[in-house]
Simulated scan of single mutants.
Amino acid sequence: MVDDAPSAWNPANVVTVLRIAVVPVFAVVLLADGGHTVTGRLLATGLFVLAAASDRLDGWLARRSGQVTDIGKILDPIADKLLIGSALVLLSWLGDLSWAVTAVVLVRELGITVMRFFLLRYVVLPASRGGKLKTVLQAVAISLYLLPLAHLPPAVAVLAALAMALAVVVTLLTGLDYVRDALRIRRAAGLPPSAGR
């Protein structure tokens, strides 16, 4: 264990920032030529998968080098939400995914993000294992929806729908877990449930 706090600009956090930077590039590629060309969809899928996979890389780098930072704990879930949220909104914009699904996921994600910021005065609430599983399931489902499904066997579209349904269920369940943790932290701090609102 080192005495000095790790630098905020360590390799893990740089990877996280790069994941955020990929989001607008992904959006431009996905929307190019109307958003439904085979080449465009495959390129967008590749970018999305690469960015989503970097979530594992930055966590591994932080733990391996002993450079887990509070800013990293905050930026990592924000980067995930920007990537996932952008993909969901664009897919709904293109008519490939129900706006209801996008709304449910975004409301949950926004709510948990706001809750995290309220809790910053007491503790940095990192992504839980359930939260990480939720992110993986969302990434898998979105990756399938990003594919040019009209040019693939119908079974792929069915698989995409099932994956998204599972992702939504886990998204809601983990959201409830975070709320429970927030209430526990508030009680431990001796605050009423409405404090900080």
Rank of each mutant, 00 (worst) to 15 (best):
A32T: 13
D33H: 06
D33N: 14
D33A: 14
G34W: 06
V38D: 14
T39A: 15
G40Q: 07
G40P: 13
G40E: 12
R41L: 04
L42D: 04
L43S: 14
A44E: 14
T45E: 11
G46E: 05
G46K: 08
G46F: 09
L47T: 08
L50D: 03
L50S: 11
A52E: 02
A52Q: 07
A53F: 10
D55S: 11
D55E: 08
D55C: 06
R56L: 15
L57K: 10
L57Y: 01
L57C: 11
G59I: 03
G59W: 00
W60G: 11
L61Q: 05
S65K: 13
S65C: 07
V68R: 05
T69Y: 06
D70H: 07
D70I: 02
G72N: 01
G72W: 03
G72V: 06
K73T: 10
I74R: 15
D76Y: 05
P77D: 10
I78F: 09
A79E: 02
K81G: 15
K81A: 11
L82N: 14
L82M: 15
L83E: 02
L88A: 05
V89T: 07
L91D: 04
L91V: 04
L91S: 07
S92N: 01
L94C: 08
L94F: 12
L94E: 04
L94D: 14
G95P: 02
G95R: 00
D96W: 01
L97G: 08
L97K: 02
L97H: 01
S98F: 00
S98P: 05
S98C: 01
S98I: 02
W99E: 13
A100I: 15
A100M: 06
A100P: 12
